[in-house]
Structures are given as structure tokens and as C-alpha cells.
Design a protein around this nucleic acid. Structure first.
Lengths: 209, 209
DNA sequence: TGTACATCAGTGAACGCGCGTTCACTGATGTAC
DNA sequence: TGTACATCAGTGAACGCGCGTTCACTGATGTAC
């Protein structure tokens, strides 16, 4: 918020300051339409300074994207810790958190799921961006263990749930839902379809147990 | 392909020619990065001519977006007609068609689900853009009728299936899937999760019948 | 049927402006001796 | 501890260019009389 008044000629941590400045600008404006000069100004430096730390604007956006994935992963971990391990409630809460994250940070969605977020990344970056998914996969694994279901693959189930949840997030963000169903409640629909999905799973796995 | 050599000073149908030119450029380049001059050139007119028919570039993109929704709706109708009415196969085929459409027309996805496609539209445009969904809803209704399931709402189910399918489309397009599951088959996963979903529905509706 | 005139879809050239990026230069920092 | 020097993170100004859009003008079309 307040710019340090006693800043010296050298910033100290301009790299991170720029990432945060860009993220704030994106969040406040609700779009990716900030300029490098905007980000530099907010970080308290001239418009040429960012180029000491980022090759170009794309590189800065990539870093902001990583921050978005990190935030999603962190909030997923918090959700998992605050719910009973192995419960379906954990899985549902993770999905609702995902949807809420996308709704609250709509422009970040474009970053994370647009050209930049889906570009090829090295393993380290990928794993960081995927940490939220691994939380879901672990929650599914715990659920299957708790119920002693062995006939299904937790990775397979986690991907299917991810698709469901991501679809709800995308649809809700598109703003089209109220046209179809004026008082549709995404969180409730996500809850019931997750339960429906696991109920279906039971009919399959029961015969295998 | 071939520009009519005997074209007079007046084009005749420049409005539609520009929409098609823009759509082709998007498809060929795989991005939305064409210029108004590109579209005009392809339609065989000068770069100022488009402004007789479209207020600005956004208006042209909106028209292309409508074309995308129309194409999706048409292919959905074809799928529905070529499968047994009331069958789960129809529903699955509609989903797989949706995913294939998004994969094949990736840049159109950005148009249809980005800023432009999700902008407020009048009822006529909305209904045209939603015609694919109505095909799915009808297929769900036919399925429920055929099985004499009355306890569930076809609109509710259709939205949930839409979310699932859309999620698979988005995830598959992001290119991240192979990182998690090297030989994941989206069409097969969509098939099995749709069946799982309806199996779950049976466990609910059985008790109501 | 022929001429005058309004209308409007085209042309070609240029404008303008936003913004990413570069350039020559400067101020601060740290380290060798 | 003090001085010289390499290093590098900053500055301020400007460049350049891509591209959407406008402008004055022209060619074709259709209709009134």
C-alpha cells in the first residue's frame, strides 16, 4: 500500500515487487490490460527498470501465473487440513474452493488457463502449478482407502473430478448459467454431482469387493 | 479459395465474406491475431471497407463467435439425429463431440468462452449460442423419459453434464493432462464418468420410483 | 427509354497512439589490495 | 581503514511499429420524372 519513502536508488527486491504489483493491478482492474509502465510505477521504479529482472512482459506474466497456481495450491492445502481426512466432504470442499478461487480471481483464470499458463513448462514449474491437483488426488486416495475401495484408480477418479469442478468454474464464470437456470447454485450443484458420482462409483466397486 | 475474377466494384455480400475470412484466418493461424487488413485482403477489398459493415473489430469478432456457436449447435443436432433417441449413447456422443469441437477449433474456444462470447447478448443471440445446450437438455429429457425417471430435473442434470464435458474439454486443451496421466484418453474418461454419473442417479431415483 | 440525382459501398493513403522495449548514462555496492 | 575499480540495478527519454480507424474521394446502382 504505502511506498517506503526512504527507498534508496537500489530497490532491494524489485523482482518480487514487480510480480506483486502486476498481480495487484490485474486484480484491481479485473483484466490483464496493465502496462509494464503501470507495474513499474506501482513498484516505485522507472519504466525501464523491470527489464533488469524480466526478459519481457511475457516473462513477468509467467511469474504472476506461477503465483496464481501457488495461491490455489495453498488454499487447497488449507481446505484439506480443515476437513476430516478421507471424507467426501473434503473432496467437495476442495471443489467448491476451486470454483470460488476462479470466481474471485477471474482474470487470473485467463492467465492460468490461457496461453501463458498452458505453455510448456519445466518440471519444477509444472509441479508447483499442479500442487492443487495433488491435494485433490490425495484426498481421493484417502477416501478410497477409508472405504477400502481397491478396484478403482485414484488418479483416474481425481482427473474426472477435476474436470467436473473445472467445468463448473468455467461455466459459472461465463455468466451464462442464470440464462438457463435463474437461481442455479453452483456450490450446491457441485456438491450433489460429486455425491452422485461417488454413488455411481459404489455401484461399480460393490460388485468388486 | 479462388477469388472471383469478375468481381465488380461492389462486392455483393461483403458482410458474410468478412466473417468467413476472419474465421478462416483464425483457424489457419490457430490464433486470434489476425488484423482487419488481413480479413479485408482475404475478402478481396481494401482495409477500410470492413467499416461499412462492422462498427469495429470487436463487432466482427462477435459475428465470428456467433458462427462458432452455430457450428457447435449444428454438429450437436447431427449427433443427436444419428443416435438412438433416449439412449445414454446419445448423451455420451454429444459430450465427445463437444470435446472434439473444442480441440479442433481451439482458438474459437477463446472466442466463445472469453470476453467476447461471454459478453451480455440479447435474447436472440443468446438462444442461438445456446442451441447446443438445448440439444443436450433434450437428450437428457428423452433418456429420463425412456427410463421413466421422474424424480430428477432434466435441466439440472443437463447443466451438470455440461460442466463435466466442458471441464474435460478445457483440461484436454490445456495440455496438462499427459503430465498427470501419460496415456489418458479423454473420450474414454468422458464415457466412463458419464456412465458413473447416471449409475449414481439410478441409486437415487430407484428409491423414489 | 434516357437523363439527373441521391445513395452508398467501395478506394488509397495516412494518421495517431498506445506501449513494449532500447539506449546511453548514473548512482550505489562490494571487494581487492 | 582507505582508495580504485568492476559490476550492476537503476534513470529518463525516445524510438518504432503494428494496427485499428478515419478521411476525402470515386464508382456503381436504382429510382424519379
Amino acid at each position: 500500500m504505502s511506498v517506503p519513502t526512504s527507498r534508496s536508488y537500489h530497490h532491494g527486491d524489485l523482482y518480487n515487487a514487480l510480480i506483486i504489483a502486476a498481480a495487484e493491478l490485474i486484480e484491481e482492474s479485473g483484466s490483464l490490460g496493465f502496462t509494464m509502465a503501470d507495474a513499474a510505477r506501482r513498484a516505485g521504479v522507472s519504466s525501464a527498470a523491470p527489464y533488469r529482472h524480466f526478459k519481457d512482459k511475457d516473462a513477468l506474466l509467467e511469474a504472476v501465473t506461477q503465483l496464481g497456481f501457488f495461491a490455489l495450491g495453498e488454499s487447497s492445502r488449507r481446505i484439506a487440513l480443515s476437513h476430516e481426512n478421507g471424507s467426501i466432504d473434503t473432496i467437495i470442499a476442495l471443489g467448491q474452493n476451486y470454483v470460488a478461487f476462479v470466481q474471485e480471481k477471474a482474470p487470473f483464470y485467463d492467465l492460468m488457463w490461457g496461453d501463458i499458463g498452458t505453455r510448456a513448462m519445466d518440471d519444477e514449474h509444472f509441479n508447483r502449478s499442479a500442487s492443487g491437483f495433488y491435494v485433490l488426488e490425495a484426498a481421493v486416495g484417502a477416501y478410497l482407502n477409508a472405504r477400502n475401495i481397491k478396484a478403482v484408480d485414484k488418479l483416474d477418479i481425481a482427473i474426472k473430478l477435476w474436470a467436473l469442478v473445472h467445468g463448473f468454474a468455467a461455466i459459472s464464470m461465463s455468466g451464462k448459467l442464470p440464462h438457463f437456470h435463474p437461481d442455479a447454485d453452483v456450490a450446491a450443484m457441485l456438491d450433489s454431482s460429486t455425491r452422485l458420482f461417488f454413488a455411481g462409483l459404489d455401484t461399480v466397486s460393490v460388485s468388486d469387493r
